[in-house]
């Protein structure tokens, strides 16, 4: 790879590897002239300039090659067919009642239990593909096997997409720039286009609209959630999706859920909301840090779900009307 790109012109490099563009600016190097061969470009940089910029001449092309290779491998997606949770121990140290739980692609599992019982903890265990090395001692198996460390800790080939309960944005940039950067890091072919789609979708979910140039850190809690959900729905290739309490975010939760589960995925949904809990095929009951039971949603409950949805629509409607200063009638 290094030898190959040494004889590329800059134009050709960017044509074949559009994401190589930032490589030079990241190193404070001026972009090479369009028709200059990269090896000539490198020879043309002065020693002092390299020293100033903390660069080693012979390392630059191998680094570029390494970057391109890493990016290429990113674009392939991973598919799995099942996930198994091996029970660990409760907060009091006793073994978990549910010894194991297997979930297949296409399944939606809700996670319910009192506040503080350990719902978010269960999702975190899945997120880090715990191997008996978290406080719960649980183990997560993928397709029946313990995932290798390269899968567990790789920061770029994520099996798990997560919309967490305590989510903050800290980066100093606009919502649009951020989503473009995220799209780039995910190697999508048209980052700007998809970024606009994500923001449009986020605005559909959020109560109050925000503009594309709103600073990321100025988004309200609900808007941040909406953006995260839209971003995950449109960008994420991860086969496992974890959603922690979308109901409190003030976003349209039914729409959000539909967006997130539309593909063949494994979905875990921690919730206090009966509607969301019953939309799942099964629900795990958590108490005292332990999975105490797994219940399958039955037909009777599904019947109830219709009634709950009607009641919910009524509530939602009333809320919207009040929000817009209307009278209920």
């Amino acid at each position: 790879m290094t030898d190959k790109i040494a004889n590329f012109t800059y134009t050709r490099l960017i044509k074949e590897y559009p994401y190589a563009e930032d490589f030079f600016s990241t190193r404070e190097l001026p972009a090479p002239g369009d028709e200059v061969l990269l090896k000539e470009y490198l020879e043309g940089i002065g020693d002092e300039e390299l020293q100033d910029k903390g660069l080693i001449r012979e390392e630059i092309l191998p680094e570029l090659a390494g970057f391109l290779e890493a990016m290429e491998s990113l674009s392939s997606s991973t598919s799995i067919s099942s996930l198994k949770i091996q029970g660990g121990r409760a907060k009091d140290g006793n073994p978990e009642a549910v010894e194991s739980l297997t979930v297949n692609v296409g399944d939606i599992i809700s996670v319910v239990g009192p506040t503080g019982s350990g719902k978010s903890r269960l999702l975190e265990d899945i997120e880090c593909l715990a191997q008996q090395d978290t406080p719960t001692n649980r183990q997560i198996l993928i397709d029946g096997n313990a995932p290798g460390n390269n899968v567990r800790f790789s920061m770029d080939k994520k099996l798990v997409a997560q919309i967490s309960q305590n989510m903050n944005f800290v980066m100093d940039c606009s919502a649009l720039d951020f989503v473009i950067m995220h799209s780039e890091s995910r190697m999508v072919p048209n980052p700007t286009e998809i970024a606009h789609e994500i923001l449009a979708l986020a605005n559909e979910l959020a109560g109050e609209r925000f503009t594309e140039d709103t600073a990321l850190t100025n988004l309200s809690g609900g808007q941040s959630r909406a953006l995260m959900i839209a971003d995950t729905a449109l960008l994420s290739q991860s086969p496992i999706v974890l959603i922690d309490e979308i109901e409190n975010a003030g976003v349209d939760r039914k729409k959000a859920l539909d967006l997130l589960v539309r593909n063949e995925k494994i979905v875990f949904l921690a919730t206090h909301d009966p509607l969301l809990a019953l939309m799942a095929d099964r629900r795990v009951i958590i108490n005292g840090g332990s999975m105490i039971r797994v219940i399958e949603t039955n037909d009777q409950e599904r019947g109830m779900l219709c009634k709950l949805e009607e009641a919910d629509a009524l509530l939602l409607n009333a809320r919207e009307q009040l929000r817009h200063g209307e009278m209920l009638h």
């Binding site: 919309i163 980066m171 951020f178 995220h182 995260m228």
Partner: peptide
Amino acid sequence: VSQAEREV
């Protein structure tokens, strides 16, 4: 931070 920011 959020997962998206970790990735970026």
